[in-house]
């Protein structure tokens, strides 16, 4: 599974740590790290929560172009 660098970039824009984002969406840092590393496919509910916190759309964070990134 490809790494999701878009979440990391969106976090950096807001100067947000992985822990802060994890707390904001109600998951552990381990889970947030797994999502960013591409080791876990989150549910659509969690995807939407992440998008809401980061102020991005589903397409911007989880769009198809993420599949090409390594």
């Amino acid at each position: 599974m490809a790494r999701n660098v878009k979440i990391k970039a969106a976090r950096a824009e807001l100067d947000m740590t992985q822990k802060a984002l994890a707390d904001a969406v109600g998951v552990s840092r381990q889970t947030m790290n797994a999502i960013e590393q591409g080791n876990y496919n989150p549910t659509i509910r969690l995807c939407r929560a992440i998008c809401k916190v980061l102020g991005k759309t589903l397409d911007e964070l989880f769009g198809e172009e993420n599949d090409d990134e390594q």
């Binding site: 109600g26 998951v27 552990s28 381990q30 889970t31 797994a34 989150p42």
Partner: peptide, 8 residues
């Protein structure tokens, strides 16, 4: 426990 931990 979050969704990934529940799945694990």
């Amino acid at each position: 426990m979050d969704e990934m931990q529940k799945l694990q």
